[in-house]
Computed example of a mutant assay.
Amino acid sequence: MNDSVRISRRAFAGGLGLLGLGRVPALAQGFAGLGENAEGFAPVVPGKTFAFPADHGPHPGFRIEWWYVTANLKDSTGAAYGAQWTLFRQASRPGAQQEGWANQQIWMGHAAVTRADIHRYSEAFARGGVGQAGVETKPFQAWIDSWEMRGGEAMRAAMLAPLELTASGAGFSYTLRLDADRPLVLQGNAGYSRKSERGQASYYYSQPFFKVTGRISIGDKPAEVAGLAWMDREWSSQPLAPDQTGWDWFSLHLDSGEKLMLYRLRQKDGRADLFGNWIEPDGRSSEIASGDNTMTPTASTEIEDRKVPTGWRIVIPARGLRIETTPLNAMSWMGTSFPYWEGPISFAGSHAGLGYLELTGY
């Protein structure tokens, strides 16, 4: 079952209309023209020194960035749930930041809850410069309308924890508390994450060690939940090459304590670039070379006249890993203005655990 809250006509006109996106493509490239020329925007180059809490905040000189949380949860009966909270920022044009309604930043929020028998989601848009959405670093707060990710005075900047996370939509809401006892993890090569061999890249770090408690309500039935969460922070001006059509992305919590971030970027000619990081229980992170792993679809689901690969086999010989993934709910389709599949998964084989899968460009 899919329920959504559609953005208002005014928000749509004030958001996508101001972006010049009168016709919204259903592709990964859609929201921010991810594969378009990035002239005038700040470049992503190797060797960045990350600074916290400053880098938890927005980087308006870059075209696109996001604050992205996914959580694998269970209630007291053992029933599994998933929760997603995402805030995107896009600059519609480069240059000095304008004041008020002239500000060129567009904000988009997505929230979702998933259970084996249901998937509900909501979407919101806001214009920068008027206080409807934004991110502040001291104390940390990210918000769009009433959805909030709040750190408070007690937040430890090097861990981005603890956090309070709230969102609601048609027939669902959640309030979650996230805490971690290990520092943030730089993805790619010290936070420089390549997306192709042609220079596309992003700055990328994660907090994969969140432990979660809280409440999810679906309809009029609240459930106390607990589990694990993963937060991604990423920003860029051109994260895709023009011939890349979308990505298949995994964040995996292994029962052994390791974490695995893995994705492949698909090209129009059928080839794919594969990237990832293996994260030890103490937070040490190692890049996984493209040739050192395989990601193979094993099952697909028909959704809105699309064939979406919702089951996968992942093999990393150097790590002795060979697993098969299974979605909690194969119909976890985000029918938002820029549609994609996003939902909780489990996996078994040489390793077992839980995680999240995102599929764009289908």
Rank of each mutant, 00 (worst) to 15 (best):
R156K: 09
S237C: 11
L184Y: 04
A241R: 09
D179T: 14
E234D: 05
R215P: 01
Q200I: 05
F209R: 02
T166L: 11
M155H: 03
A223K: 12
S146C: 07
A142M: 11
K221F: 10
S173K: 04
Y204V: 14
A157F: 13
S146F: 08
S236M: 03
L228P: 00
S196C: 06
N189C: 08
A167E: 06
T175G: 08
M231S: 04
K221G: 03
K138D: 12
Q200V: 11
S236Q: 05
S236V: 06
T166G: 12
A170G: 13
P222L: 03
P139V: 08
V225R: 06
P139T: 10
S146Y: 09
P183W: 04
T166F: 14
Q200P: 09
I216C: 01
S236H: 02
L240M: 15
E164C: 02
S236N: 05
R177N: 14
D145K: 08
G199C: 01
L240I: 09
P239F: 13
S236G: 07
K221T: 15
Q132G: 09
D145T: 09
G171V: 05
R182K: 15
A170V: 14
P183I: 07
L186M: 12
I216P: 02
M155L: 15
G171T: 05
L186H: 02
G214L: 00
K195L: 10
Q187D: 13
F209Q: 02
L160D: 00
G188K: 06
G152L: 07
L178Q: 10
K211L: 11
A133E: 00
I218T: 14
Q141C: 13
W147H: 02
E153W: 12
S236L: 07
S236E: 03
E197D: 14
R182S: 08
D220S: 14
Y203T: 00
S237I: 09
T137H: 00
Q187F: 11
W230E: 00
T213W: 00
R215Y: 01
S173D: 06
S196I: 03
I218R: 13
P239L: 11
S217M: 14
A229R: 01
E153F: 12
V135E: 09
R182I: 06
D220F: 10
A180F: 08
R156Q: 13
T166H: 15
A180H: 08
A241T: 10
R150N: 13
G191C: 11
L184C: 07
P183L: 03
R150H: 14
E136Q: 15
G214W: 00
T175H: 09
E136L: 04
V212G: 05
V212N: 03
W235K: 02
E224G: 07
W230C: 04
L165T: 02
K195C: 12
Y204Q: 14
R194D: 09
M231H: 04
K221E: 14
Q200N: 14
K138S: 12
S217E: 15
A167H: 08
W143P: 00
A154P: 07
A154N: 13
R198C: 07
A167D: 08
R233N: 04
R194W: 08
P208T: 09
V135M: 12
S193M: 01
P239T: 05
T175Y: 00
G171A: 04
P139H: 06
F140I: 10
Q141T: 11
K211D: 11
F210L: 12
F140P: 05
